[in-house]
Amino acid sequence: MQAILDSDIDPQDIISSSRHPKISSIIWGRLRDINLKTDDLELIRENDDKPTWDVNVGLSDEFNKNLASDLMLYIRCQPVAAMVPPKELCGIIVNSYYNRLAASKLTEEDRWTNTTSNRRGNRKTALNKRRKRTYTKHKDAVTEKFNRDYNGVFYRDAMSGDETETDTSVVASRPDWRSDEIMFYIKWFFCCLIPDLARDDLGKRAMQLKLQSHVLVHETIPRGLVTKMPTWSKRI
């Protein structure tokens, strides 16, 4: 570990937390949470007792090298890291330092923006998962109506964009790269089928459902969806 930190870090050796999320979670659990928000004194004391990166010095500083070595020893004892090469573990640890360094340079406005963006992204991911589960549950009914398998269109980046919400309605932006067929299906599935099914499931709580509508906006299809989305779902 120390040999890698003593040399120049190759950007290719830095491993994104998304590649090994469980290991990254272990690392952040061992480090002090600089954004901890709680009134629980015990949790505050536990958090204060944890180490954290010294972002006022480089990664090759003695303190940070020792912390990195301690993290490596701890992670290699975890079952989830059993099949991960040591070099990748180093890359994940190095990534946590640079993430902490970047966070230290954020203004309060930046932090608020990031928090808002993360919440919106998490909400979108959760919503897409719920919609896919609903589709899977009622796939026979959808196939019978449209004679088409829509399983390959449930990607988070393919969802509608920003939403404007009131007490009774939701208006979402709909990218115009979608074909007429997929737009018709989405309108029927999410504006007709799901509300009807939800009313059956929710009973009296169905009154909480909001009217949904969409506004067409010009957007280029995200690069990652060009080959993933079926041809019939995209406007040529």
Rank of each mutant, 00 (worst) to 15 (best):
64 N>I: 11
111 R>Y: 07
79 P>E: 10
103 A>P: 01
126 A>I: 12
142 V>Y: 07
95 N>P: 00
152 G>A: 14
104 S>F: 00
175 P>C: 02
106 L>E: 05
171 V>C: 03
170 V>G: 01
77 C>G: 13
160 S>A: 12
156 R>M: 12
122 N>G: 08
177 W>L: 01
180 D>G: 09
150 Y>R: 03
64 N>V: 05
116 T>L: 10
150 Y>C: 07
136 T>F: 04
101 L>R: 05
107 T>M: 07
164 T>Y: 01
138 H>W: 12
172 A>G: 01
87 K>Y: 05
76 R>C: 05
131 R>W: 09
161 G>F: 00
116 T>R: 13
125 T>E: 12
143 T>N: 08
71 L>F: 07
162 D>M: 07
156 R>E: 13
96 S>E: 07
78 Q>G: 04
122 N>R: 08
153 V>D: 05
141 A>G: 01
171 V>P: 01
78 Q>A: 08
61 D>M: 06
86 P>I: 05
64 N>G: 11
94 V>R: 04
101 L>P: 02
91 G>H: 02
67 L>A: 11
128 N>T: 06
120 R>M: 03
141 A>D: 13
133 R>Y: 13
113 T>R: 14
78 Q>H: 12
82 A>Y: 10
61 D>Y: 09
127 L>I: 13
131 R>Y: 02
103 A>R: 08
133 R>M: 14
101 L>D: 03
71 L>R: 04
130 R>N: 14
144 E>C: 08
83 M>A: 14
92 I>E: 13
114 N>E: 13
96 S>K: 11
146 F>L: 07
125 T>R: 15
93 I>Y: 11
104 S>P: 02
147 N>I: 02
90 C>L: 04
117 S>N: 09
163 E>W: 06
74 Y>F: 15
109 E>V: 10
158 A>R: 03
86 P>D: 09
61 D>H: 14
62 E>N: 09
137 K>S: 05
102 A>P: 02
85 P>N: 04
68 A>N: 07
125 T>W: 04
144 E>Q: 12
94 V>L: 05
89 L>N: 05
102 A>S: 14
63 F>K: 15
72 M>I: 05
154 F>H: 10
140 D>S: 09
61 D>L: 06
166 T>S: 14
62 E>C: 06
140 D>P: 00
62 E>R: 12
148 R>L: 13
116 T>Y: 00
88 E>V: 10
63 F>I: 11
137 K>G: 00
170 V>R: 09
126 A>R: 14
153 V>G: 02
128 N>F: 08
78 Q>T: 09
111 R>S: 07
118 N>I: 12
160 S>C: 13
80 V>R: 11
157 D>V: 00
150 Y>V: 07
149 D>L: 04
130 R>E: 12
143 T>L: 09
100 R>T: 15
125 T>G: 08
156 R>H: 03
172 A>T: 01
150 Y>M: 13
110 D>F: 01
66 N>R: 15
64 N>W: 11
91 G>A: 03
160 S>R: 03
138 H>S: 06
129 K>C: 08
82 A>K: 13
110 D>W: 03
129 K>N: 15
91 G>R: 06
149 D>H: 08
81 A>F: 10
63 F>L: 06
173 S>Y: 06
135 Y>F: 11
137 K>A: 10
164 T>A: 04
81 A>D: 07
126 A>V: 10
69 S>C: 10
